[in-house]
Deep mutational scan, measured.
Amino acid sequence: TRVETATETAWISLVTALHLVLGLSAVLGLLLLRKQFPAHYRRLRHALW
């Protein structure tokens, strides 16, 4: 049972790390898009919101 708990903890930390990386890359991508293609960014924002 101890090994299972350790594996679960590892999976949870892995998933958390993946979510963090995905969130950060999404934010960075949006910032880059905003900087380089303001028109595209505006259109995207209108489409999303």
Rank of each mutant, 00 (worst) to 15 (best):
H40T: 13
P38C: 15
T16E: 03
H40W: 15
Q36S: 09
Y41L: 15
A6N: 10
P38Q: 15
V27M: 09
L20S: 03
Y41P: 09
L22Q: 00
L20P: 07
A17D: 01
L44H: 01
L22V: 09
L30Q: 04
R34V: 13
L14G: 08
A17W: 04
Y41H: 03
L33F: 14
G23D: 02
R45C: 13
T1S: 04
H46T: 13
R2Y: 12
W11G: 09
S25M: 12
V15E: 09
E8T: 10
L28Q: 01
G29S: 08
R45L: 13
L48R: 05
A6K: 13
L20Q: 02
L22A: 13
L33V: 11
K35H: 09
E8F: 06
V15C: 04
H46R: 07
R2A: 07
H40S: 04
T1Q: 07
G23S: 05
T9A: 00
L44D: 10
H40C: 15
P38S: 15
L31K: 04
T7C: 02
Q36I: 13
H40Y: 15
A47R: 08
W11E: 04
S25T: 11
V15K: 13
T9K: 11
W49H: 13
E4Y: 06
L31M: 11
V21G: 11
A10C: 05
Q36D: 11
W49I: 11
V27H: 00
A26L: 14
L22G: 10
A47C: 09
A47K: 09
L48S: 05
K35M: 12
A17Y: 06
L20A: 14
G29W: 06
R34T: 13
W49Q: 15
T16R: 03
A10S: 07
S25L: 08
L14T: 04
L30M: 09
T5A: 04
T1V: 13
Y41N: 06
H46I: 09
H40R: 06
L28D: 01
V27L: 11
R43L: 04
R45K: 12
L28I: 14
H46N: 15
A39C: 15
A39M: 03
R43P: 03
L14P: 05
G23F: 08
A6P: 02
A26G: 10
L18Y: 01
L14Y: 02
H40F: 15
A6S: 13
S13T: 07
T5V: 03
L22M: 07
L24D: 09
H40I: 15
A17P: 01
G29I: 10
I12V: 06
L30G: 11
L48M: 08
R42P: 08
V3I: 09
A6G: 14
L32F: 14
G23C: 10
L48E: 02
R45I: 12
L33D: 01
S25N: 04
I12H: 06
L48V: 10
R43K: 05
A17F: 06
L33N: 01
L33A: 11
A39F: 06
A17C: 11
T7W: 06
L33I: 09
W49T: 13
L30N: 03
L33K: 06
F37D: 05
K35S: 12
T9V: 10
V21Q: 00
A39H: 06
R34D: 00
L44Q: 01
T1G: 02
R42H: 05
W11H: 08
K35Q: 12
A47P: 04
L18W: 02
T16M: 12
W49D: 10
A47Q: 03
H46G: 13
H19M: 13
S13C: 10
R43E: 04
R43N: 06
L48I: 08
Q36V: 13
V3G: 01
G23H: 00
W49C: 14
L31D: 01
A39W: 03
R42N: 11
H19P: 12
R43H: 15
A6M: 10
A10G: 10
T16Y: 11
Q36C: 15
Q36W: 14
I12K: 08
E8L: 03
L24N: 01
Q36E: 12
S13V: 08
P38G: 15
Y41K: 09
Q36P: 04
Y41R: 06
L22D: 00
